[in-house]
Design a protein around this nucleic acid. Structure first.
Length: 107
DNA sequence: CTATAGGCCGACT
DNA sequence: TAGTCGGCCTATA
């Protein structure tokens, strides 16, 4: 089953809701979001959605990183993400976060 | 720690 | 129509 790229698609809405429900001080991965949204194969599309987000979005896009805790964004964008994370108390070392300590796991 | 190998799938040339 | 490219993932060496 192919996903609908429309911003109103179930997939997109699920992703937005999930990202929005990541607690401050925690991080999640693209694949994790995709999986929770019901489409484990669409990790990349999650990134696509994030890149499409408007600048004034309220979504905490910065809490989404790679599965290994690495910041995916290059250059200045990654810098912004790093600062937003640290402002929430997430320790970022060399563009890296400890998934063990800050990973978003549901209880 | 790096390097390879395989997979995935929408968007854009 | 066929490549190529992404804010990717997992496993293995």
């Amino acid at each position: 089953m192919a996903i609908n790229t429309d911003a109103e698609s179930d997939f997109a809405r699920a992703v937005y809701q999930l990202v929005g429900s990541i607690p401050a001080g925690c991080i999640a991965s693209y694949g994790q979001i995709a999986t929770l949204a019901g489409f484990p194969q669409h990790a990349r599309f999650v990134g696509k959605l994030m890149s499409n987000l408007p600048n004034d979005t309220r979504l905490p896009w910065w809490r989404v990183l790679r599965s290994n805790g690495e910041i995916a964004l290059p250059g200045s964008a990654g810098e912004e993400q790093r600062q937003r994370l640290e402002k929430e108390g997430v320790l970022v070392l060399n563009l890296r976060v400890s998934v063990k300590r800050f990973g978003w796991r549901l209880d």
